[in-house]
Design a protein around this nucleic acid. Structure first.
Lengths: 110, 110
DNA sequence: TCCCTTCATCGATGGATATCAATATTGAGG
DNA sequence: CCTCAATATTGATATCCATCGATGAAGGGA
């Protein structure tokens, strides 16, 4: 029998010491970065293509260029993606460790 | 060598058909429910205790009772938790399938 | 029936956020 | 240099959201 343990690895034992506020805020920040359809789609795109040019994103989504840039900044500030400027273009990639960390949050205890 | 595939299972191949908007909105809704420190902490608490009374939550967090009730409603609307009224009290539990689904989103492709 | 406890809902409010147009910035080519 | 193309930043705005106090609803006990 498996016991679901969402967010458990962050916290401690199974009695009742509450999750530290800092940890909760930290995780909420990450989820907030994913709490928008456009950003979810961007991250999905990044997960399929290794690296993506901003120009491709502005072409793919029916949103203005500043709006796309805004979403990319939020994902960058959250540490979920990283940018690299090459010439006039900017390329974005996922940050594997950040994703791995989120995956760990939903771990299943046996 | 492992390739991270965040949100990949939701989408399709690895060329470029974009993630369906409906799927992105659906996922964003779930993440939005977790995009608040209090709700993260509530879910964490639920993950350690099988079932929790609302009165325990209002006691554990330094927030007003309506605010806790508000957060619980958001988690309920997102399908992440479910409530059961027993007498004067209300008990909340995690919905395992919803958690499992989110866990699957962060799957790792080999 | 009356009151108390538990929880949900309502209404209001201050702060965050998604969006765009306009502007700044930076690199490449001529 | 001068201009164009690609991104980022700024400023403005409309909407959303977290929070609280007040109120409502419903059960339990005297």
């Amino acid at each position: 029998m498996k016991t679901l343990a969402l967010l458990q690895p962050i916290c401690c034992a199974s009695d009742t010491p509450p999750m530290p506020r800092a940890a909760a805020e930290d995780l909420a920040r990450a989820f907030k970065a994913l709490a928008d359809p456009t950003r979810v789609a961007i991250v999905n795109r990044l997960s399929t293509t290794e690296e993506v040019c901003v120009c491709d994103l502005t072409a793919a989504f029916e949103l203005s260029q500043p709006t796309i840039s805004h979403h990319l900044r939020i994902l960058r500030d959250a540490g979920l993606v990283e940018a690299e400027a090459r010439g006039t273009w900017a390329y974005y990639r996922l940050v594997p460790d950040a994703i791995e960390r989120l995956r760990g949050v939903f771990a299943v205890a046996v």
